[in-house]
């Protein structure tokens, strides 16, 4: 079911946290949601470009959570 449209001004955002100690740098998250995740030039480990992505990215961030091989990404 399509959710009811919300006014732009109160668009909900997601809260995403990453754990660089767990990250193995495989890059699935960057491939899946490049607006939200990046890899550090120095060590290739995950960097959060946007810790509060807009709700429209929910599906892809969820996919990045599912695909992460080391469980290094979660919704807060």
């Amino acid at each position: 079911m399509t959710p009811a449209p919300r006014p732009l001004s109160v668009e909900t955002t997601l809260r995403v946290v990453v754990d660089r100690d767990r990250c193995c740098g495989a890059g699935n998250c960057v491939l899946t949601a490049p607006e939200v995740f990046d890899q550090d030039d120095a060590d290739g480990l995950v960097l959060l470009r946007d810790p509060a992505p807009r709700d429209a990215l929910r599906e892809r961030v969820q996919r990045a959570v599912d695909l992460c091989p080391t469980d290094a990404i979660r919704f807060d």
Partner: peptide, 12 residues
């Protein structure tokens, strides 16, 4: 050892 290589093979 793996972390010495992760940046080499990252997507960018």
């Amino acid at each position: 050892l793996r972390r010495m290589l992760t940046a080499e093979f990252m997507i960018k």
